[in-house]
């Protein structure tokens, strides 16, 4: 049997929901790794623009950390989207090489002699290296497809595509069990840490489900609601995989790609909200202010990272109103 087949067939009989839960939890980890990567970009930018005094070592270890963190993302992606693993690792290796070249070429550049010491700051090799590194991370003027950010977007797209492909074993598992369908709304409801062990005996209702973000999302949606309205009407059935402070929401409608991931625990600084939607979706009418939005060939990404759980909960209410209201 080929390896890819094996990877695909990992889940044997009746473990579809369990695998769905594990993959959803891994996806959350994947997002955490992405977040750390963005934090590294930010750190570099801050040092570059913020009058900091640093040395070459700082830049080298920053580049190193980016490679390390990107590797973790690529690994998660290769588990979440096994078909894409090889392609992603090839791209990763290219970036690893690019990182090594970046460090080497800068190191071989002759140090500015005393006569040049009045040259502009940006000519200092450390600053040059950091500038090059930032360009490599997510420079706006960098040649297409050469930035880490570009690869990140690609990874995201592959992962989401794979998770949501109708043929994925996890997706298929949803239709196996009728008790995961909510009693009150057009929702598949999965308790991430409980349903993996045993499926509920009877149908649950969304309004009783113990997930703080899910409750916020649906706070202003009336009892009969749950079917999306307006331009989101085409959304069809939803899948909500949740735990106390966590929510992973997406739709089964093949024509409308939308995914929302959030952690809003208030206990640690890793709370976040992340949204992916296909290019046809107008995020402006959906999201409250304050989101960072990235458009790409693959679709639209939006996130809000450095926010309190309360802000996330407020955002969820607005998004809920706009989606289902």
């Amino acid at each position: 049997m080929q390896l890819l087949e094996k990877l695909k067939k990992l889940g044997h009989k009746n473990t579809g929901i369990r695998d769905f839960c594990i993959q959803t939890i891994r996806f959350k980890k994947f997002l955490e790794n992405a977040r750390s990567l963005l934090d590294l970009f930010e750190d570099g930018r801050e040092k570059f623009t913020g009058e900091y005094i640093f040395d070459r070592h700082y830049v080298v270890s920053l580049i190193d950390s980016v490679v390390e963190q990107l590797g973790m993302m690529v690994y998660d992606a290769s588990v979440l989207a096994p078909d894409r693993g090889e392609e992603l690792y090839a791209a990763y290796d290219r970036h690893k090489l690019a990182a090594a070249n970046l460090i080497e070429s800068n190191g071989s550049r002759p140090n500015a002699g005393p006569s040049e010491s009045l040259a502009a700051d940006r000519d200092d090799p450390e600053y040059q290296l950091l500038s090059d590194a930032l360009m490599w991370f997510n420079g706006k003027n960098a040649a297409a497809h050469t930035t880490v950010m570009e690869l990140m977007k690609k990874i995201f797209f592959f992962v989401i595509q794979s998770l949501e492909s109708p043929g994925s074993p996890e997706r298929q598992a949803l239709s196996e069990k009728s008790t995961v369908l909510a009693a009150d709304k057009d929702f598949y409801l999965i308790d991430l840490w409980k349903d993996a062990l045993a499926l509920p005996e009877t149908q649950r209702s969304v309004s009783d489900f113990n997930s703080v973000p899910l409750r916020h999302l649906l706070m202003d949606v009336d009892e009969t609601g749950g079917k999306a309205k307006g331009h989101f009407q085409k959304s069809g059935a939803w899948v909500a995989a949740a735990s106390e402070y966590q929510l992973s929401l997406n739709t089964l409608n093949p024509d409308f790609q939308f995914r929302l991931e959030t952690l809003a625990s208030g206990y640690e600084p890793s709370d976040f909200i992340f949204i992916f939607a296909d290019s046809s979706t107008n995020l402006d009418t959906l999201l409250p202010k304050g989101f960072h939005v990235e458009n790409s060939d693959y679709g639209r990404f939006a996130w809000n990272l450095d926010v309190s759980a309360k802000t996330i909960e407020d955002s969820l209410m607005i998004i809920g109103r706009n989606l289902f209201g």
Binding site: L10, T15, I22, W193, K194
Partner: peptide, 28 residues
């Protein structure tokens, strides 16, 4: 721990599916 279990199972052709139950139970 759960993600490690998935990784161990990826390395061993799903040799330790029991781990999942153990870990989900620990969480519960």
């Amino acid at each position: 721990s759960l993600l490690m279990a998935q990784e161990l199972n990826l390395m061993t052709e799903n040799h330790y599916p029991d781990l999942y139950d153990v870990i989900f139970q620990l969480r519960n």
